[in-house]
Design a protein around this nucleic acid. Structure first.
Lengths: 199, 199
DNA sequence: CTCAAATTTGAGGAGAGCCTCAACTTATGC
DNA sequence: GCATAAGTTGAGGCTCTCCTCAAATTTGAG
């Protein structure tokens, strides 16, 4: 790749990172190009679709979440680890509206490795008697999804307000507070499908 | 109002009711007019803005929710009443994607009477020791908001799946399972603002 | 320095929706 | 019936965003 091309790529990523974080994933591509000081044509040269650009911008988050997961699994107290993981994911969302929308569109459960790690977190927390036995990873995904809505809503007005919502939800997830659940859990495929073509 | 005008108004409302329920509030107005067998100009004659149309279509829901609230307040078991109210609101959403989006845009907390009634439900459930003392109506609005996301996602694929999410959440709201909350609650105005200009 | 390959550029076509308004049609009181 | 106010119509202008492509420019190997 030629050096000017690489340079423009960097400028585009910087601009996109900033705009996605502040205004979400639906910023007009033309605006990203303008902010980067580059023409719309160049943007399309480097990133043929919006999706490729989004993927490039949020590439690093995959590693960050994996790291959070490792820490959760290594924690002495299973419940603390579990809470720290969920809190960490929410903090990522609270720091970046774009990442929030990625979660809100179900991309989290999309990656296979991410899925596997989260399964282990749930399993460990349940084995150690911290997390109620009847929840599945899919339940958790929806619960987290709901909190994502609160994170997004309070993004500007009251950063940190989502911590209350998370705390309330966690109190319902503790092993001690379990009451019978009224319906069978969703299969992984069903959950993925539901989140991906959410109206 | 002339009789043909009234007739067209009815046809428009019928079409809008159906399309909003199936596809949400963002259906193109031209499509509503076409479905109603009427021109776009007529739609604009009857309903100058999308908002007036939406308001007319969902007018009846206000009464329905008030009724649910009355039943909740009259219940013998305070917790049962509280649960029935939340369940009822979710069922309304599950039956109508348009109403789901209205809730998801925070219009529920908008009406003053609705607000007052919900305050009474919360207060009563807390006085009778069923609902944990540290939650506010605003907390509840966000929680319900989160569940609305699940209702919307599972709308087609797994109707009823949201009942699990609601049940988990309720287990966190019971008086018995309360652990300290990490942040101060939002004021009513803050909550309203957060929901109304949610990015 | 030269030139071909790589890259950039931005005007413009395409599609979706919103909304208006001047010309036409219909209901209704007299 | 008739006049007229009320109502309907839909083509067309407007805005926004996406995306393409032929012409102009830049890079870097030889």
């Amino acid at each position: 790749m030629r050096k000017d091309a690489l340079h423009n790529r960097e400028r585009l990523l910087r601009a996109a990172r900033r705009l996605f974080a502040d205004r979400g994933l639906d910023v007009p591509l033309e605006e990203i190009a303008r902010t980067a000081g580059v023409s719309i044509g160049t943007l399309y040269n480097r990133f043929p679709t919006r999706e490729t650009l989004v993927a490039a911008v949020f590439e690093d988050r995959v590693a960050t979440v994996a790291e959070l997961a490792e820490q959760a699994l290594a924690a002495d107290d299973a419940w603390e680890g579990f809470v720290a993981f969920l809190t960490g994911v929410c903090e990522l969302q609270a720091a970046d509206l774009g990442y929030n929308e990625i979660v809100a569109r179900g991309a989290t459960t999309g990656t296979d490795t991410g899925y596997a790690v989260m399964l282990r977190i749930v399993a460990q927390a349940q084995e150690r008697g911290a997390l109620r036995d009847d929840v599945t990873l899919e339940d958790l995904a929806f619960v987290l999804w709901g909190i994502a809505a609160t994170v997004r809503a309070t993004f500007r007005i009251a950063p940190g307000a989502w911590r209350r919502h998370l705390a309330l939800t966690l109190d319902g997830l503790r092993a001690g507070s379990a009451h019978p659940l009224p319906a069978p859990p969703l299969s992984p495929d069903q959950a993925r499908a539901a989140m991906n073509d959410c109206p």
